[in-house]
């Protein structure tokens, strides 16, 4: 049922979409974009991959369970708030490093937070998509 064209196209587009997702994440602080939209982009990439091949293959490509992604994403967001807490200021106090790295820009707890957002969005979207697809398969059986 899966067409060759879709498979080939997916092979090409898949990495591009992931890169674009990263780009959206990084530039989000200064221009429209950010973790949420970036996450949706990455999720679409995997969803497309699943469509072109199979859910199982897509799960393999992801290498982690989608719940683990959600959990880690939440953990990122959670951890990004901790330094401030331990430094005696309230939760979620933003911290910035002074050195500027190429491409990424300044490292900060805020970036960690936004990355967490991205991971959660990917995890959630894929959980839904995969579970739906699997439920459909089962019902057809």
């Amino acid at each position: 049922m899966t067409s060759i064209i879709l498979v080939v196209a997916t092979r090409l587009i898949f990495p591009l979409m992931l890169m674009f997702s990263l780009f959206l994440l990084l530039r989000g602080h200064d221009a429209p974009g950010g973790g949420f939209v970036g996450g949706l982009m990455a999720a679409s990439a995997f969803a497309l991959f699943a469509l072109a091949t199979s859910v199982t293959r897509a799960r393999d490509a992801l290498r982690r369970s989608t719940f683990r992604l959600i959990g880690i994403g939440l953990l990122f967001a959670f951890v990004s708030g901790l330094p401030g807490l331990f430094a005696g200021s309230p939760f979620l106090r933003a911290l910035w490093t002074s050195t500027e790295l190429p491409v990424i820009g300044k490292l900060s707890s805020v970036l960690l937070f936004d990355t967490g957002v991205l991971l959660v969005v990917v995890g959630v979207t894929l959980t839904i998509v995969f579970a739906m697809a699997e439920a459909d398969e089962e019902e057809e059986e």
């Binding site: 950010g34 719940f67 708030g81 979620l92 933003a94 900060s108 805020v110 957002v117 839904i128």
Partner: peptide
């Protein structure tokens, strides 16, 4: 906030706890 996109700075910094709640909602929905 070290950011030019005010909306994004609000989301991830000024009102980050809202966003934290938001992704929690997503997680629970999943």
């Amino acid at each position: 906030g070290h950011g030019h996109n005010v909306v994004n700075v609000i989301l991830v910094d000024f009102r980050a706890i809202d966003t934290l709640g938001e992704i929690t909602v997503l997680g629970i929905a999943a």
